[in-house]
Simulated assay, not measured.
Amino acid sequence: MAFFPDSLQTLENSLGYASAKNHSISDNIANVDTPGYKAKDVEFKNVLQNELKSSLEAKRTHSQHIPFNHFNTDQSYRTVTRRNTMYNHNGNNVDVDKEMAELADNQIYYQALVDRINGKFSSLKTAIGGGN
């Protein structure tokens, strides 16, 4: 039995995603007037699929079958550059209104993750203290 359940690892990965997204949004906002700057996004890549692969236990009927836990689920996001749009005459494609809306959304997401982690640790503290 693992001391910390897989849900804490998932929450940690989600915090990493939210932090990377916040960093890319702040870079975009900081470069709103930089000529030629291309905005960056952080996106999930097959997160649900990877999580399902890592948590499913499949029965292997042949020794050469690949087990589900063989797949790499360390990083569930990546940073990409938006190249197909241009909003300003100087080649910059940062839409400050869009970035501010994404920043607010990401802050709510991050805070929800922190609250969930705090709840997990509070449950552990209660269990260790014997319910007191």
Results as ranks from 00 to 15, higher is better:
Arg83Ile: 01
Lys59Ala: 11
Val42Gly: 02
Asn31Ile: 08
Phe68Leu: 10
Glu43Asn: 07
Tyr87Ala: 08
Thr81Met: 04
Val42Pro: 02
Ser63Glu: 06
Asn28Cys: 01
Glu43Gln: 09
Gln75Ser: 12
Thr61Gly: 15
Ile66Arg: 08
Asn50Gly: 05
Thr79His: 10
Arg82Cys: 03
Ser63Asn: 09
Ser63Trp: 07
Ser76Gln: 10
Pro67Tyr: 02
Asp74Val: 08
Gln64Met: 02
Arg83Gln: 00
Arg78Asn: 09
Phe44Arg: 14
Phe71Ser: 04
Ile29Asn: 11
Ile66Glu: 06
Ala58Tyr: 06
Leu56Phe: 03
Ile66Trp: 05
Ser76Arg: 09
Lys40Arg: 15
Ile29His: 11
His65Gly: 05
Ala30Cys: 08
Asn84Cys: 09
Ala30Leu: 14
Ala39Met: 02
Gln64Ala: 03
Ser63Leu: 09
Ile29Ser: 15
Ser26Glu: 07
Lys40Asn: 14
Glu43Ala: 08
Leu56His: 05
Thr61Arg: 15
Lys45Glu: 06
Leu48Thr: 12
Lys38Pro: 01
Asn50Ile: 02
Ala39Pro: 00
Glu51Gln: 12
Ser54Met: 12
Ser54Val: 12
Thr79Asp: 06
Pro35Phe: 11
Pro67Asn: 03
Thr34Asp: 07
Asn50Asp: 03
Val80Tyr: 04
Gln64Glu: 03
Ile66Leu: 14
Asp33Lys: 15
Leu56Gln: 05
Arg60Leu: 15
Gln64Ile: 01
Ala30Trp: 08
Lys53Ile: 05
Leu52Val: 00
Gln49Tyr: 12
Val32Thr: 09
Val80Leu: 07
Thr61Glu: 14
Thr81Ala: 04
Ala39Val: 02
Thr79Met: 14
Thr81Phe: 00
Ala58Trp: 03
Phe71Trp: 02
Ser55Met: 15
Ser54Cys: 06
Asn84Pro: 04
Pro67His: 04
Tyr37Thr: 13
Gln75Ala: 08
Asn46Ser: 06
Thr61Leu: 15
Phe71Val: 05
Thr79Gln: 14
Glu57Ser: 11
Phe44Ala: 15
Lys59Glu: 09
Thr61Ala: 14
Ala39Lys: 00
Gln75Met: 14
Ala30Pro: 06
Ser76Cys: 04
Glu51Asp: 06
Glu57Ala: 07
Asp41Ala: 13
Asn84His: 13
Ile29Pro: 09
Gln75Glu: 13
Asn69Phe: 10
Leu56Pro: 00
Leu52Gln: 00
Pro35Val: 13
Asp74Ile: 03
Thr61Cys: 09
Asp33Gly: 14
Phe68Thr: 07
Thr61Asn: 13
Val80Phe: 06
Ser76Phe: 06
Lys45Trp: 01
Ser26Pro: 04
Gly36Pro: 11
Ser76Ile: 14
Thr34Gln: 08
Ser55Trp: 08
Ser54Asn: 12
Phe71Gln: 03
Ala39Arg: 02
Val32Asn: 04
Thr61Tyr: 13
Arg83Thr: 00
Thr73Trp: 02
Asn31Ser: 15
Asp27Phe: 00
Lys53Phe: 03
Lys45Leu: 04
Lys40Ser: 13
Arg83Ser: 01
Ile29Ala: 13
Glu57His: 09
Asn46Val: 00
Gln75Thr: 14
Glu57Phe: 03
Asn84Ile: 06
Glu57Asn: 13
Lys59Leu: 10
